[in-house]
């Protein structure tokens, strides 16, 4: 009886502890939501999450955008870049992963090691040469420098993820398919690709999200406001004309979270599985 009570007390403390932590985690998100409804001048002074005066002005003003460019343009640009990037990553990283996981070719280990190195090294050292290269090609202020590399399977993380996944599939299937006269490409399109669908969804999800949240590359290559993406559009609220409009910026930030949250909540298991795959020794 006594033991049962201490057990119960322990569980209660544990539960309260987790709830407190969860509230701490949620606080900034709720704060953002609250701030987006506060009049700009109150954002700095009001500590409470709940706005004492709620207004939709921030949303109205934010959606109008900056100058002649409305915020819908930024959303449209972000969607174009993200969807293209996600599709390209899914198709080309999976082809490359298939080669690494199933085909034999000269120097496979060396190439695999090189690919893994790109995962490790910071991209900063290649940033400037890439910038110069794309500038020579006249690609500055277009989506090309952001999207085209994805068609070349340059995202080692996804190749690695898919290689791990394909290695986990039994080889017997493709061996028997080969005996039945299936070509290598057939094995890929008819067997491996359908079986890797979960990993492909993970790839699509993460490429979309990471491109959506990325700021650095977009800042580098996009120069005119009508090409700007959501994060860049948000930044415009802060440094245009010195008069920072934090309210509209936070309102548009809230909107910018919606696609990410929808994807996450509807496809949660693919997120978890994808992250877990990278954490298991291959």
């Amino acid at each position: 009886m006594n033991r049962k009570q201490t057990d119960l007390a322990k569980r209660l403390v544990l539960n309260l502890f987790i709830i407190a932590l969860a509230l701490g985690m949620l606080y900034p998100i709720l704060w953002l939501l609250g701030a987006s409804f506060k009049p700009s001048n109150r954002i700095f002074t009001e500590v409470s999450i709940w706005p004492s005066v709620a207004t939709l002005d921030n949303y109205r003003e934010g959606w109008r955008g900056i100058g002649i460019v409305g915020f819908d343009t930024f959303f449209k640009n972000s969607f174009v870049i993200c969807i293209l990037s996600a599709l390209a990553n899914a198709i080309f990283c999976s082809l490359t992963a298939f080669a690494f996981a199933r085909l034999k070719f000269k120097g496979k280990n060396l190439w695999f090691a090189l690919m893994m190195i790109t995962l490790m090294l910071p991209s900063h050292v290649t940033t400037i040469p890439r910038y110069i290269m794309f500038r020579r090609m006249g690609w500055i202020n277009t989506f090309l420098p952001i999207v085209v590399p994805k068609f070349f399977a340059t995202d080692a993380f996804f190749i690695f993820l898919l290689v791990q996944f394909i290695r986990g599939l039994p080889r017997d299937i493709d061996e028997s398919a080969t005996i039945d006269g299936c070509s290598k490409f057939g094995i890929y399109t008819r067997i491996i690709m359908p079986l890797t669908v979960p990993a492909l969804i993970t790839t699509l999800l993460f490429s979309f999200l990471w491109t959506w949240d990325d700021f650095f590359n977009q800042l580098l290559y996009l120069t005119s406001p009508n090409k700007y993406t959501v994060p860049m559009g948000l930044r415009l609220f802060l440094d245009s004309s010195g008069m920072s409009s934090w309210g509209p910026m936070f309102a548009m930030s809230v909107l910018s979270l919606i696609p990410a949250f929808i994807l996450f909540f509807s496809l949660q298991k693919y997120f978890v599985r994808g992250i877990a795959t990278t954490g298991i020794k291959g």
Binding site: M25, P28, I29, L32, L209, D213, F215, P231, S253, F264
Partner: peptide, 13 residues
């Protein structure tokens, strides 16, 4: 959830 928010927005919040 915090992982879904872009670094730039996070920084401002």
């Amino acid at each position: 959830m915090p992982n879904l928010i872009g670094g730039i927005v996070l920084g401002w919040i």
